[in-house]
Nucleic acid binder design. Structure first.
Length: 313
DNA sequence: GCATGTCAAGTTGTG
DNA sequence: CACAACTTGACATGC
């Protein structure tokens, strides 16, 4: 069984998350700023409940929660703690409700902190900010019962070998509560599944397999082989493997193949995934959001096998 | 109202 | 060297 996952947003379902800019808050008193942030956090926590209901209603089994759920939480000037917010109690209540709903309806929750989290950076302040950001995600994950915080390894200053060592060192300094939720994903320019596998197994860190990134940044492994490595890394912890899929804009023609298209081209769905005996989670990264997930589900379950294609490239 | 420029942050590759 | 790409849209501003 494939557990299909939606990433962060909806295009059709009336669920929207709110945000604020640091500059707009800077003109307010601290008290006013915290009031405004509190309202946004509460609205977003309630919107998360709407999002999970929609996810469940559409028949999806996973949801990636936007990192912006608490706007500007780690910002150097505008940042705050949850207990600084006037609505802290209500916010925690709404998140607890989301947690229960997800558990009851078997919705797997994850986070994917953005590109600013670079544990392999050679710059101390970048690493410190990354740790802060991960602790924020860890706190939210505890409150909503999210299982996975998925990140990339990061840059490769000084060569991949050195960068991996920096990552290892900085990873080990993170609180245990954060470490046990982290997962590492192959990226589209630097680190391939082969680059990550040994590190992941050594740190008991599961590996998220993004097949599109693997096609952009290949390592000689077939998709089947890389899928196997990913499954291994999750099996070790007795957890369900996690994959990502997306299709490039412009159908692999010239231009940047890295940007995402509205829908998943059925030919981009690896045929070998249909033969897997074990359950897995598949996040669908596509601009048409829930419509793209629905279309892919229909393509897989409704009309037999998708066309086999690009098995290794 | 509505159009449009702007948002905290890192790293890499392209034109 | 500027800019786009990475989960992206929503907010703030000015007409």
């Amino acid at each position: 069984m494939i557990r299909f996952g939606l990433c962060c947003l909806f295009v059709e379902a009336p669920v929207r998350f709110r945000t604020a800019t640091a500059s707009s808050l800077s003109s307010l008193s601290r008290r006013k700023a915290l009031e405004k942030l509190s309202g946004l956090c509460l609205a977003n926590s309630e919107n998360l409940n709407l999002a999970l209901k929609a996810v469940s209603g559409l028949g999806f089994g996973a949801f990636r929660i936007s990192s912006g759920l608490f706007p500007l939480f780690t910002h150097p000037a505008a940042g705050y703690g949850i207990d600084d917010l006037p609505d802290a109690g209500k916010i925690k209540g709404a998140l607890g409700k989301a947690c229960c709903f997800a558990a009851k309806n078997d919705i797997r929750l994850s986070f994917h902190p953005d590109q600013f989290v670079v544990l392999s950076s050679h710059r101390d302040n970048v690493v410190a900010n990354s740790a802060k950001e991960l602790e924020y995600h860890g706190m939210l994950a505890e409150l909503v019962g999210a299982e996975v915080i998925n990140i990339h390894l990061g840059g490769r200053h000084g060569g991949k070998k050195d960068a991996i060592e920096r990552f290892r060192r900085n990873f080990q300094k993170l609180p245990e509560s954060v470490r046990r939720k982290l997962a590492l994903e192959n990226d589209d320019v630097s680190y391939t599944p082969s680059d990550l596998y040994e590190l992941c197994m050594g740190l008991s860190l599961p590996m998220v397999y993004d097949v599109h990134h693997h096609r952009c940044n290949p390592d000689g492994l077939s998709i089947g082989d890389a899928t196997g490595l990913c499954i291994d890394s999750w099996k070790k912890a007795g957890r369900e493997p996690y994959f990502h899929i997306s299709s490039p804009k412009n159908l692999w023609k010239k231009g940047n193949p890295r940007s995402h298209s509205d829908y998943i081209d059925p030919a981009d769905f690896p045929a070998c995934w249909l033969k897997l005996k074990r359950n897995f989670t598949l996040d669908v990264e596509a601009k048409a959001k829930e419509l793209a997930v629905l279309r892919l589900m229909k393509g897989i379950h409704g009309h037999g096998e998708p066309r086999a294609g690009r098995e290794n490239k």
